[in-house]
Amino acid sequence: MIQALFFYLFAAVTIASAVMVISSRNPVHSVLFLILAFVNAAGLFMLAGAEFLALLLIVVYVGAVAVLFLFVVMMLDVDFVELRQGFMQYLPIGVLIGLIFLAELLMVAGAWVFAPEATATASAPIPDPAVVSNTAALGQLLYTRYIYFFQVAGLVLLVAMIGAITLTLRHRASVRRQNISAQVARTRATAIEVKHVEPGRGL
């Protein structure tokens, strides 16, 4: 009973805030509603018993991605009102395409169901949650069976890092960079200069 109550609460808030993300005028509000949607989706995961995914969603999406969005939106001077100017003009064709897609989806979903044996033949079946907590279950799968995929995913991230650095980092002569060894090597003699100031004259 209380579970159902919370499900409807989380679901309703998720959908409402998702609508607000695309409809609010102020982009900062959009991002804040996005965070609200993430938190409520995490609540839904929690209800479904996937506590690891729920916390991951909070840590990664709310903690990192959404805050990054917020920074970008606040730092970039993008006039979102101007971006939306053609909105009404393109609305009819957008709605038309949307309806066509919806009809196609209904035609597919109406005629097609998941193969009933799919869950039974799954190559990595879900262990009983009473025996193995789902954090442990994910870890066991990720670091044994899927070690290959895990390592390749790491390589993909490495490429992303190299790419971001090569495409954006520029060494400009005018930029002063921190030289730690020079800082540490400072002595009293190089750091301080004693000026003899005559009384009443100033420097």
């Binding site: 044996e117 799919a118 033949t121 799954a122």
Partner: peptide, 27 residues
């Protein structure tokens, strides 16, 4: 994956042989 329950090629081929042609597989 949804149709066959496998991500491995051998499993997909086996499921496709057993299940025959279907709309999901074609998609």
């Amino acid at each position: 994956y949804g149709f066959t329950g496998h991500t491995g090629f051998a499993g997909i081929a086996a499921a496709a042989t057993a299940g025959g042609s279907s709309l999901g597989l074609t998609f």
